[in-house]
């Protein structure tokens, strides 16, 4: 098994930390993992992205041209990464703030209204966990139990009181996933 994932959005949306939780979950599941962030000026408000690879075998390149799965959280990232999803791959995007919808017909496309839901439930800070929940529904690459362990590992102890809220978000994310175009 090998899953090559790009997560992309605005700085501040939790892109890098979502990648980190996913990488830690892979570690808990005994996978080889790599997490390669864009570490440039993006962190200060532009677009941010992270490449996460989970694999049963040793990972060669942490930098990729094409991805199995793309998690897209804003328009510029959709424009940049939609063409770079492998044929038959998966696109998961948050429905908020897009002026142009995904247009490819040779990939699986899912929408998740995580921003809307997280605000409605007064859980805006767990936004990225809703998305991660959605991802696991379509691509069950790691067990939920290992995600929760990974979350605990990647969160500093002072934030451990938020673990329960994050778990709720993760499980809710699984419910609110909307298939748009499934092959």
């Amino acid at each position: 098994m090998k899953e090559e994932i790009i997560i992309a959005g605005f700085g501040g949306q939790g892109v890098l930390s979502m990648g980190k939780i996913l990488a830690y979950s892979g570690l808990m599941q005994g996978k080889e993992v790599s997490w390669m962030p864009s570490y440039g000026p993006e962190q200060r408000g532009g677009t941010a992205n992270v490449t996460v690879i989970l694999s049963d075998e040793k990972i060669s390149s942490p930098i990729l041209q094409e991805y199995d799965t793309a998690i897209i959280l804003n328009q510029p990232s959709l424009d940049k990464f939609e063409p770079r999803i492998k044929k038959g791959g998966t696109l998961l995007y948050d429905g908020h703030g897009f002026v142009r919808e995904p247009k490819r017909k040779d990939i699986n496309i899912y929408r998740i209204d995580a921003l809307e839901t997280s605000i409605a439930l007064n859980m805006a800070k767990a936004f990225n966990m809703f998305i991660l929940g959605g991802l696991l529904k379509i691509r069950p690459i790691v067990e939920i139990e290992n995600v929760l362990l990974g979350l605990k590992k990647s969160l500093p102890e002072r934030h451990h009181h938020l673990l329960a809220q994050n778990e709720t978000a993760l499980r809710k994310g699984i419910e609110i996933l909307i298939p748009i175009h499934v092959l």
Partner: peptide, 10 residues
């Protein structure tokens, strides 16, 4: 380099 410095691995 910045790639190996910034990436996370086991």
């Amino acid at each position: 380099d910045g790639l190996i410095g910034q990436m996370m691995e086991k």
